[in-house]
Design a protein around this nucleic acid. Structure first.
Lengths: 221, 221
DNA sequence: GTTCACCGTAAACAATCGTTTGAAACTTAC
DNA sequence: GTAAGTTTCAAACGATTGTTTACGGTGAAC
């Protein structure tokens, strides 16, 4: 029971603590103490703190990307069913299916994804880009014909706008829900929020290109 | 020349370094050394690192919020001119006018705004909420009639979706631009990106409500 | 010329960080 | 039961962190 238990306990604790406070703000000592293992165990099993961070991402991204990839394969067999909404649905459904009803885990991971972008940790971005860049490119290839009329530049920025919308919302999910119940009296079901989020992203992707053309010259310097 | 020079040199260096690496990742020693002042000067003039962080935000939020507030006052005198686009334009124009053509400062400023949300620094969020919460509420009051047909719940979530889009883009501005030049060959001018961002947010705000109604029951549990 | 308040400086402070060490405890295999 | 290999452990390492101290310098007030 030795290794596997220790390694997974470290990963569980690290995942939760990183999501809660960030990478630099979480020390190995708080990780190992909440995991109930010795301090040296992290460097023994993972080698370094950076490697631990990457392992946390790897554990989560591996099954998720596999699920997305498989669903994209299914979608490609019915090309006429490919559109913005169905492509977005692939993502939300994959997250939901891979990590099931464990909403805490899913939101914790989304916060991690957001932190990977925001915290300067370049090695995390490089790791993700190296490891899963191919999957992202496949997704982008399918999205492009679903948004006819958009230039490559527009496609890039609009997809990252949509990505940002999702990451921000998920990474602050609990805080936003608390504010929502305070402001509106309704907490909002997960389905309700995800549906609204998907609609927002789809509307932005679909309509931004048409609206922006008149407002600015496409210099792109 | 003593005090003013030192204080502003510290603020300049801190602003640039915080934007570049984040708060926890920037030590007082690197701040004071790039500012060319003594290490103890930070604690002497500001009291602590937290107070320095707040001072950095205060220095650039103060004129910005004042500019936004003034523009909202102008807008309110022509109520028929109030719509989603004009309200979003108030924000982008204010940033542009306050920090002028100094693109570096503006993007650094954007990253700081994003970091304020993302980095767990609770004291920053509390400071901003206490200081500038009133201005945010005024903006929200003007936005509501600009989005007729949306329920309070939808209004809340969609505005926070838009907020997330902007914050994510801002806080990763340089990284996204680097990816853009890699993927598309174009870096994208600030005007181009801001225009696309505004269009994306406006499209999302306008159209999300209509699209979502059919897709999910408005349970909001 | 002395006082006084303010500012800059070098040095040290205590705390915390990630990492390493060397030996004990354990598991596995023969 | 012994040897080999793996995992755990307490302790320490060197480096870096934010903060404080004690002292030197400056310039205006009177």
């Amino acid at each position: 029971m030795a290794q596997k238990e220790t390694v997974e306990r470290i990963l569980d604790a690290a995942e939760a603590l990183f999501a809660e406070r960030g990478f630099a703000e979480t020390s190995l000592r708080t990780i190992t103490s909440t995991a109930g293992v010795n301090l040296a165990a992290v460097n023994y099993h993972f080698g370094s703190k950076k490697a631990l961070i990457q392992a946390v991402f790897e554990r989560f991204l591996e099954p998720l990307v596999a699920e997305i990839d498989q669903r994209l394969g299914v979608l490609e067999q019915n090309p006429e069913s490919i559109n913005v909404e169905s492509l977005l649905k692939v993502l939300s459904s994959s997250i939901y299916d891979v990590h099931g009803r464990n909403t805490n885990r899913a939101t914790a991971f989304m916060r991690l994804l957001g932190l990977a972008y925001t915290q300067s940790q370049a090695h995390v971005r490089n790791f993700i880009a190296d490891r899963y860049g191919e999957a992202f490119q496949r997704y982008a290839r399918l999205l492009k014909p679903a948004l006819p009329g958009a230039t490559d530049q527009e496609l890039f920025w609009h997809t990252h706008f949509a990505l940002g919308t999702a990451i921000f919302t998920m990474s602050n999910f609990d805080a936003l829900r608390a504010m929502a119940v305070n402001d509106t009296g309704h907490r909002g079901s997960v389905d309700f929020i995800v549906s609204n989020l998907t609609s927002f992203m789809a509307a932005g992707l679909r309509n931004a290109s048409h609206d922006v053309a008149a407002a600015v010259g496409h210099d792109g310097t």
